[in-house]
């Protein structure tokens, strides 16, 4: 049987995407759908039966104080961590762009934390945050402190955000630098000729021109902050969610309920991941629709 050219091309196309398609279906999408399925059950991998309980898992979230705390904390990680990271890294990028000498050295310096394991970073910062650690020592010289940092229910979450911002700085600085480099010199030169001040140039040219960069960094920053886990676990004793659960995030709570709790509440944990999934989906769609606009 001979195939028409059209059909042969068509077949080849499918042959090539078959493997990635298989990967996506069974390694990515499959488990996601499976998690939806699990969220409707009282699911304990060791138990003999896993009864179907409908939306009971979602209902019990409403009365679960720790869940609400983890939800609130997650929004603090996003609401404070993302803007703080963007502002600081933009300032650094602007500074680095003006440098004439040792630019490579400085870029490497800022990028180094990003390639360091987050667990190691978490532990080093934990030592610096210790009651008798580096930060309290330094503040002590100017007569401040001592502060409890990670030991205080009010400060612990911001202490962890500081670590996260520091860790992600290098990545954001590099992306911002690329964005800044791509702004045509002509625009800035023309604005100068028109007598625009530095602030006006920044506000009316640099920021709008950086829009795609900003959208990218906001979307990735929000997603990674919604999924924050490693540093919280590394920076609180025993892998708990900080004093009085003051630093617990949704993902950490999911982990605790699914894998640390015995009997395992994997169904309930799956239900929480479904909520997280819907949140990330909604935010990402919103960001792409609203923030992404063409610059003139």
């Amino acid at each position: 049987m001979s195939l028409s050219l059209q059909r042969r091309r068509w077949l080849w196309g499918y042959a090539f995407i078959a493997i990635p398609l298989f990967f996506f279906l069974f390694v990515r999408i499959g488990p996601t759908i499976y998690a939806f399925w699990m969220s409707l059950h009282q699911w304990d991998p060791i138990a003999l039966d896993r009864p179907f309980i409908g939306l009971e898992n979602f209902r019990s979230m409403a009365d679960d104080e720790t869940f609400w705390k983890s939800l609130r904390n997650t929004w603090i990680y996003v609401g404070v961590g993302v803007p703080a990271g963007l502002i600081i890294s933009l300032l650094i990028a602007l500074g680095l762009q003006r440098m004439i000498r040792f630019t490579g050295f400085y870029r490497v310096l800022y990028f180094l934390p990003y390639i360091t394991s987050l667990v190691a970073v978490g532990w080093v910062w934990r030592w610096m945050y210790m009651p008798n650690g580096l930060f309290n020592d330094i503040l002590g010289w100017v007569g401040l402190g001592p502060y409890k940092w990670l030991g205080s229910p009010d400060m612990a979450i911001y202490s962890i955000i500081a670590t996260t911002v520091w860790h992600g700085l290098g990545f954001q600085v590099v992306i911002f630098l690329a964005g800044l480099e791509s702004i045509p010199e002509d625009y800035l030169a023309a604005a100068s000729v028109d007598g625009a001040s530095g602030w006006q140039k920044f506000r009316d040219i640099v920021v709008p021109q950086l829009n795609p960069t900003l959208v990218f960094l906001i979307v990735t920053g929000v997603i990674s902050n919604l999924q924050v886990f490693t540093q919280i676990r590394a920076m609180s004793s025993g892998g708990t969610g900080g004093p009085l659960d003051s630093t617990i995030s949704i993902v950490l709570y999911v982990y605790q309920e699914a894998f640390q709790s015995l009997p395992s509440k994997m169904g309930y944990a799956s239900a929480m991941t479904v909520v997280l999934f819907l949140m990330i989906l909604a935010i990402t769609i919103f960001q792409l629709k609203v923030l992404q606009r063409d610059t003139e």
């Binding site: 934990r126 030592w127 210790m130 009651p131 008798n132 409890k148 990670l150 030991g151 004793s237 004093p243």
Partner: peptide, 8 residues
Amino acid sequence: TQAGFQTD
């Protein structure tokens, strides 16, 4: 004593 002294 204090909590978190030398981490644990």
